[in-house]
Design a protein around this nucleic acid. Structure first.
Lengths: 197, 197
DNA sequence: GTAATACGCTACGGTAGCGTAGCATACTGG
DNA sequence: CCAGTATGCTACGCTACCGTAGCGTATTAC
């Protein structure tokens, strides 16, 4: 029917409720992980009645899935006109920036383990987290095929290397997630790949 | 009173029960995280009566803490006679090996997030995970002060770099956690540090 | 063999959370 | 102003899980 209906909820009451619920839900998830996201806790924290929550989400699993999504950063793909090396650096910057944002940063450990939870993963898209790193993977591939890093580079291994560095930094609350760090991560990665073996 | 009593349980019934419970508990934790470790589930999976479990562990939190510990790898410190670079490579090998072992490997995502859980972390020593990386940190420090990597290396940053690489590899079930990988991780790290900036 | 002890079993009481029903109230769009 | 609709509220029934009590049985050490 009308596609716009799901995007632009005309009734401001609906918009208000949804936003309040999701904000509270994210806050609870960040603070205490999936276990803290109970419908009753969300209701109390948001000021939205429990019954109203169930009018917008089929069950707790669907609410949790939306919460999970809301915690993930949006990593934009780099400008297609950029050279492979610059594009790689740009993606790393974007990733570091995204991972450094609240609530992503504090939710990160939970974001990693929640998809494995046999209860809480029920309605959770398994590839949402992987999707966050899609542009990084393609940037690595471009860098490899263009010779910025060795052509026989194992893309997945390189992904583990970069993502691991970024995530561990983000998990450490004392770590500044700025462009300096991003550039250093990219630099150490490229330098090691060029020299190593 | 007798210190030995807690270490050497003379009664084999006690030993049997404890081992059966912990084995089942670890299996449940690996499979479904802390949420799956319910006293009743452990009881059923182990064949040990619930009341017996409570005779050995004060409450669920203490059982979970032991389970958590049992999932962590033991990383031995490298031989003190080893040169800094060799020692670093050795620690990385040991870490990669330890993280590649079951049940550590599959439990890893849960091991990262559980300490942050306001419920399940109640009796969980916060530094147990960090302790696992203690020998790595000291190896990095030695490598830096001896000039294998730049002397002004940020130890914590280097730790994030190495631990992140290792953990992300371990989380990927398709990744072979062998000495080849360990050596490559160490090599890429050192090469990048020597050349980068 | 015998006393000590660990264990299994059943049955509790209590709590937290899920998801629903029904009805009254407040808000929104026209 | 009015009809439609979203919301709030109370009260449920249901399930899973925690932690305990009491008693009979089996295993162990001596």
């Amino acid at each position: 029917m009308r596609v716009s209906e799901s995007l632009v909820d005309v009734d401001p009451r609906v918009r208000r409720s949804r936003e309040a619920v999701l904000a509270a839900s994210v806050a609870l998830f960040v603070e205490g992980g999936p276990r803290a996201v109970t419908v009753e806790a969300v209701s109390e924290a948001s000021g939205v009645a429990k019954t109203t929550i169930y009018r917008h989400w089929r069950d707790r699993a669907h609410l949790l899935a939306d919460t999970y999504r809301a915690c993930l950063p949006v990593v934009e793909s780099p400008d297609g006109g950029l050279a492979p090396e610059a594009a790689l650096r740009e993606v790393v910057r974007s990733l570091v920036h995204g991972m450094g944002q609240q609530p992503t940063r504090r939710a990160l450990p939970h974001l990693i383990s929640t998809p494995l939870d046999p209860v809480d993963s029920s309605a959770l898209p398994a590839d949402v987290l992987a999707q966050t790193f899609a542009s990084l993977v393609s940037a690595i591939s471009r860098a490899a095929s263009s010779g910025v890093i060795p052509k026989d580079t194992d893309t997945m291994e390189a992904k583990h290397q970069l993502v691991g560095f970024i995530i561990m930094s983000a998990i450490d609350p004392t770590c500044a997630m700025d462009d300096d760090l991003a550039d250093r991560i990219a630099e150490l990665f490229i330098a090691g790949r060029q020299l190593g073996r």
